[in-house]
Structures are given as structure tokens and as C-alpha cells.
């Protein structure tokens, strides 16, 4: 089995690679179209800013590659937001796999809500194969200032003043807002289930 991690300017590829290694899988970090297309599984990670990341993907032609992939794809954190339609972060048009808007958290009272959300939050309403070995209300590690709204493709929900999409799924595209690679053993279970798809 060949697992590819998409290389671009907003990747936290090292942590994802190490998490795969802990599962006995070698992740190939690449931005080469042929390499990506020939993979059995594709992971699209991301930590960074949306417009810079989208510009980079467009310049490299990776936007068209990612949206036309037919094997299972897993977007993580910014990777998930980029798979949505549009992000409020610097008013950025994204890849549009999921027909959802990405918005910024707003504190209802000044300094009540710390932004970014940093830490462990529970996820509920789990209904995707990647959560096969994840109990309802499991805690995952989140670091983000922007969130994807709820929609028909939401397969897990988290709450940070409002309910939002902790995970999305549509056809072969899976996406999680949290970091499974940093979410202890239960996060590892998600990666393992994804690799078994």
C-alpha cells in the first residue's frame, strides 16, 4: 500500500509521518502529481494561512490534482478548511469539495473565548468509517481560529460556543478539523481506520 502526504507550504508533514510510522506505515511526502495519483491513500495536512496555501496549490497545479483524486483522501486541520468552498481567512476561494463556508470564531464577550481554540475538545454525532474505533465524546486535539459550519456532509460535531464540523465526509473525501496525529491513541485509531479503507 502506498500512502502519500501532500507536500506544500502549509504542511505539518513531520508529525503526520511520525504518526503513520507508529502504525507501521511509511508516508511519502511529495508534490508530484504522478506520485500522488498512484497512491492508495492521500493525506492532505496543513497548518498555516488559507490564502497563502491556496496560492501555492494553484501555482503548483495541485488544486486540480486534489479535487480529481479518486482514492481515499484525508484532509487535516487547514487541509480540511481548504477542501471547503470558501474561507473568511483573507477572503479565500478554496477547493470546493465540500459546499461549506469556513468562518472565524467570534467571542460573544471580549476575551471570553480564547482564539485560536487550543486544546482538547470532545466530538459527537460520529458517523463515518474512520470513527469505527472511536467512542462518542472522545477528546481530540484542536488548534484553529477558523471553523467549517455544519452541513449535510458533517460526520462529527464539536462545540466552541457554537456547534461546528469536527469532521466531514463526501464520497472518497474525508476531513477532520482536529489533529489525529497528535490526539493520543484514539487519534491513531482514526488514521488506522482511514488507512484500512
Amino acid at each position: 500500500m502506498k500512502t502519500v502526504i501532500i507536500k506544500y507550504n502549509a504542511g505539518n508533514t513531520r508529525s503526520v509521518q511520525f504518526a503513520l510510522e507508529r502504525l507501521g506505515v511509511t508516508g511519502i511526502v511529495t508534490d508530484d502529481e504522478a506520485e500522488i495519483r498512484s497512491a492508495d491513500k492521500v493525506i492532505f495536512p496543513g497548518v498555516g494561512e488559507a490564502s497563502t496555501a491556496m496560492n501555492y496549490l494553484r501555482n503548483k497545479g495541485l488544486d486540480k490534482v486534489i479535487t480529481t483524486l479518486e482514492q481515499p483522501v484525508l484532509g487535516i486541520c487547514l487541509g480540511m478548511q481548504l477542501l471547503c468552498k470558501h474561507s473568511e481567512e483573507n477572503n479565500t476561494d478554496c477547493l470546493g469539495v465540500f459546499d461549506l463556508a469556513v468562518k472565524k470564531f467570534e467571542s460573544p464577550v471580549e476575551n471570553m473565548l480564547k482564539i485560536p481554540q487550543i486544546g482538547w475538545n470532545n466530538i459527537t454525532g460520529l458517523h463515518s468509517t474512520i470513527f469505527e474505533h472511536v467512542p462518542e465524546n472522545s477528546y481530540m486535539y484542536f488548534v484553529h481560529s477558523y471553523y467549517a459550519a455544519l452541513g449535510p456532509e458533517t460526520v462529527a460535531t464539536a462545540n466552541y460556543v457554537i456547534n461546528y464540523s469536527a469532521a466531514l465526509q463526501k464520497n472518497n473525501f474525508y476531513a477532520v478539523q482536529f489533529h489525529p496525529e497528535k490526539s493520543a491513541d484514539v487519534g491513531g485509531n482514526i488514521l488506522e481506520s482511514f488507512l484500512k479503507l
Binding site: F18, R22, Y141, E181, K182, S183, A184, D185, G187, G188
Partner: peptide, 8 residues
């Protein structure tokens, strides 16, 4: 550490 520890 990053290889062996699965929390941030």
C-alpha cells in the same frame, strides 16, 4: 520525542 509521543 516526536516519533514516540502522540500528544502535542
Amino acid at each position: 520525542i516526536a516519533q514516540h509521543v502522540n500528544i502535542p
